[in-house]
Design a protein around this nucleic acid. Sequence first.
DNA 1: AGTATACATTTCGACATCGAATAATTGGAG
DNA 2: CTCCAATTATTCGATGTCGAAATGTATACT
Lengths: 151, 151
Amino acid sequence: MPTRYKGTAREIAALNAFIKLNRSVNALQARLLPPLQKEFGLTESQIAVLEAPFHLGPLAQGELCRKILRSGSNVTTVVDNLERDGLVRRERDAHDRRIQIVHLTDAGRDLLMRALPVHVERITRTMSALEPDEQRELGRLCRKLGTSTAV
Amino acid sequence: MPTRYKGTAREIAALNAFIKLNRSVNALQARLLPPLQKEFGLTESQIAVLEAPFHLGPLAQGELCRKILRSGSNVTTVVDNLERDGLVRRERDAHDRRIQIVHLTDAGRDLLMRALPVHVERITRTMSALEPDEQRELGRLCRKLGTSTAV
DNA sequence: AGTATACATTTCGACATCGAATAATTGGAG
DNA sequence: CTCCAATTATTCGATGTCGAAATGTATACT
């Protein structure tokens, strides 16, 4: 005897958009992440962590947290794995020894320079299911939704 | 000496929309999941797994996989945890003993009936950062993006 | 100087997630 | 009827993710 949750029209409209939003992100990840893993052995988090020092130069782990919007403990784990694989290197800040500065190694830079264009190209191709103006509109709506501090 | 990856205008536009899309989903989850965990002890996956037999009645694990778009091994894990907590119950199909049918227990149904309205209300409030027509447009764009089989 | 407070990171335990390998069961081909 | 191929679920090992507690370091106050 399945019971159905009765929502108001307003709730149904919101849920509808919400579900489609989540599904679309799932679908994008399902298309983009397996090839990234297969071809370069990189996860989404790893490429995010590599990109930060690639674009910005050596970086404290705390800054890294804020850039990629993950918890401190998570960044520790991901950096551990990347360090083990020789793609980044940690160095204590000379002036504040609490801080770990994350440096890209040569191997890390090389790998990223091979992986990034392929990855970006795949994102571009996937996103091109939308027209340029649709991409802009999607971006605008997502931004409005994400930055709203509405209770 | 930070090296910057030079993208074409088309790539930059695609990445822009892509990043905003991902960020918005992150932001929504950051707002919705901690309260769900604190108030009801439920994760996103758990509520998804509970909802399926709630709406559809007892359900084979394989069907459940397809409903919530997760791997088989993942569904096994989440159902394990829910079963341990007494929220669902597994029963072997009488005619095909490979199949595990997932039933909601009374405790599971009770919990879901308390949690779901609160959760849906919070989703609705969060999504109301967008006007109704914006929600529709967001849904349309996400759907178009997610279902495109474009290479 | 000594202590208390604040801050950066790590550790720990729990859950989610995947793919590959395995086990159990079914159904069909011969 | 027997055996093989397909199907369903589980196990295993790896990664990511969080929050809470612990650790180490810096700084401010007395």
